[in-house]
Amino acid sequence: METWKQSKAVFWTLATPGTLWLAIFFVAPLAIIWGLSFAEKTSIVDTEITGTLSNYIRALGTPVYLKIIWKSIWISALATLMCLIIAFPIAFVVAFAPDKWKPILLMAVILPFWINLLIRTYALISVFRTRGFVNFGLEWLWDGANSILAFIGLGPAVLGAFEPLQMLYNNFAVIAGLVYVYMPFMVLPLYATIERLDKSFLEASLDLGASQARTFWSVVFPLTMPGIVSGIILVFIPCLGSFLTPDLLGGTNATMIGNVIERQFKAANDWPFGAALSFLLMYATFGALALRSLFAGRKSGMEV
């Protein structure tokens, strides 16, 4: 890594467009909302920025919001972990596939995500509902087992009638739904890092007698860490703010903080409070990211 002074022209060429774009078309709009988080509602449409902290106090002082935030955090964490567990082998297979197959496999992973989220979620519901395909399949197996048992003389319906699994409208469904929504955000960065893994390291490790598992933990895992970290960031943070998935797949207590925020901007018509909640979420994430860079900063001396 070099300091920016070494090649100022290149530095500024790289820095200017992205920074300007983000500053004008993102930070400026956001600043309006940030200002709102210190505002008070004066009428049904008007708000006045008074520098009040009441919105933040309301959010932090009411246990129910903290409870919902906490719940959002662990649901998102579980979903992220699931994503990682599922995405890693997929990214691995795609990255190690013959060149000819790579784009096909990559497309195959991404394709489902080009279908509209709403449609996809409804399709997911039709697969997992009480009278959905998973339960039909299970019932078929169940009945088959029953008739085999009856055939070998154990009497009719030993296993009893089939009870459909209740897979929707609970926390499990929300986590599964989030995994189904955010999977590519994990697969793609993982793919990009695994793909550049120098295979001679793996060969060396295996040649020197390490098992596949050992090779994975001591060679592959550390070397793909940047991809894993960016995947976790890209999945965990959007999960935190999601509202459509808990809305459609969750049960009666599936509300996540995203739903509460969404309501403040819509039905509750309380933009200042919604802004304060959003920014609380952002402050927390930034805190976490800062901690990570502190932690990573200590290690980066080795890595780079």
Binding site: I44, I68, T252, N253, N259, V260, A267, D270
Partner: peptide, 18 residues
Amino acid sequence: GEDATRLYDEAWTRIQAA
């Protein structure tokens, strides 16, 4: 009115979190 809207919203949040 806006005060009642907030009353309902807060009740609804508590219902969902309970």
